[in-house]
Design a protein around this nucleic acid. Sequence first.
DNA 1: AACAATTAAGACAAAGTAGTCTTGATTGTG
DNA 2: CACAATCAAGACTACTTTGTCTTAATTGTT
Lengths: 145, 145
Amino acid sequence: MLFSKGCEYGLRAMIYVATHGEDPDEFVPIRRISKELDISFHFLTKIFQQLNEERIIESYRGPRGGIRLARPASKIRLMEIVVALEGPGLFSECVMGLPGCGDLAPCPLHDGWSEQRDRLAGLLKSMTLAEASRQIAAEGLRIGP
Amino acid sequence: MLFSKGCEYGLRAMIYVATHGEDPDEFVPIRRISKELDISFHFLTKIFQQLNEERIIESYRGPRGGIRLARPASKIRLMEIVVALEGPGLFSECVMGLPGCGDLAPCPLHDGWSEQRDRLAGLLKSMTLAEASRQIAAEGLRIGP
DNA sequence: AACAATTAAGACAAAGTAGTCTTGATTGTG
DNA sequence: CACAATCAAGACTACTTTGTCTTAATTGTT
């Protein structure tokens, strides 16, 4: 498993918000997201708290409160979400776990792995929530169970 | 982290055995591997037990016992080791954890992820212990700390 | 036969991840 | 103001992974 559960949930939840935000200024209750995607409400709350600290979303309490994107979906890249939830370093780890592995002292898999890893990183860096969301709408893809 | 610790250790240990087996019929004690690679002896023993069940290595008890490759290093592909230690399915999981995600009902990252994942799988399938070992010898690479 | 070297197996412990619950703070609505 | 809806925060539990320890079985050497 590449991403932690928290990161998987966070990605799906953010894409959900981007997709279902009729009015982007409206706050979406976490409870609704949790039900739609079948993710534990409290766990999801903690995930959004992390995303809130990184200013990727905004939250608001009280009736009609919830969370919303802090910026237009076209300005939020998937990589930001991954970094906020996995921490930096996911895309610099050695696949065999050698502490000093790198371009200078590579393990046997280093070159092959880092190429694929960098491509994935490139995909996450270039893909925005708006694109993921558009792709879902256009092709009838799914983010829930 | 893509691989579990057990899988990381298993790959390094197998490459070590392939590299340091002067006589391929000689048994290498697990304790020696554990010291050279700085991996917990008992944990490593359990890893080799799994590899033994899959007939990737052979073990022998008593003085001058240890483990050795069950086949020539050129006949053992890294993918076998990964599958033995991670189980099958690592290379068919959805990156966002959606149970039904696949070519028919893809999540937004499905195509991009599965391409990189398949390339990595291809690398692991095509690379043998002999090649990894030769690469280390030729280029002075490292598998220990 | 006695001993030392070694793997085998499983119980156990520690640490990390995932998930639940409770309480508190904020805020709109009647 | 009273109340309900909602996020915030932290304690707590459960599960999984990782690592340790102990005991047993096997085997070569003396």
